[in-house]
Simulated scan of single mutants.
Amino acid sequence: MRLSPTGLDLIKRRNGLTLKARQDVSGLWFIGYAHYGDVSEGMEITQPEAEAKLEHEIGRFETQLAGMLTVPVSQGQWDALLLLVFDYGLARLRNSILLRHVNASDFERAAAEFSKWIQVRGRPDIGMVKRRDAERQMFLQGSPAA
């Protein structure tokens, strides 16, 4: 399964495009659409390079997420899970209660878990609260999130 155009647009809108490396609140360098890792001070990229980095990262997430799921999911559920992974990473999802509920086909309980993924640097963050609420709705209804 692939991230829908709606999900891709949401990632882009949420993260914005940064063509010159910047540091986040924790001091980590990022560039493009929140690309981390091989980024250092002074680094610059073009928009096509940012798009390529994003596509590569999403492709890696899709492959690994597919390997963690043991039940079929809807497009809305898939998108919501990938959006969560984009913010918190695959390792955190892999051992989560949320994933256990998904794999047990207990989608109501899985949806309730989204509200627990709201911390930035150990503190609740209003931006993450809004993201998780939109993803929970997307997960339950398959509708586009804001």
Rank of each mutant, 00 (worst) to 15 (best):
G76Q: 06
V120S: 04
D24I: 05
R22V: 13
T18E: 14
L98H: 14
L65G: 13
H101D: 09
L17I: 11
M68S: 06
L84M: 02
L10A: 11
K53W: 08
M128K: 04
T6S: 14
R136S: 09
H56D: 14
Q75H: 12
R60V: 15
A80S: 09
Q119I: 00
N15M: 08
Y88G: 00
R109Y: 07
A134Y: 01
A134F: 00
R121Y: 06
R136Q: 13
S26R: 13
P144F: 00
K53T: 03
F107Y: 10
Q141D: 09
E44A: 15
V85C: 12
Y33T: 01
D106V: 06
L8F: 07
R132P: 03
S74G: 15
K116F: 04
A145V: 09
S96H: 02
A80W: 04
I31T: 09
E41N: 14
R60W: 14
L81V: 04
I126M: 08
H56L: 13
G7Q: 03
L98P: 05
K130S: 06
R2A: 05
M43V: 01
L82Y: 04
S143G: 09
R22M: 13
Q23M: 08
R132H: 07
R2K: 11
A134L: 05
R123E: 11
N95Q: 08
H56Y: 12
R14P: 00
S96T: 02
R2W: 03
G27N: 13
D24L: 06
W78T: 10
D125E: 11
Q47I: 10
M43G: 03
I31Y: 09
V73F: 12
A80D: 03
E57H: 14
L81A: 02
F30P: 09
G59N: 12
P72F: 02
L10E: 12
S115Y: 08
L98V: 14
E51V: 10
N103A: 01
N103R: 01
A110K: 05
L93P: 02
F107I: 01
I11P: 01
P72T: 06
G127V: 07
E62P: 02
V25H: 12
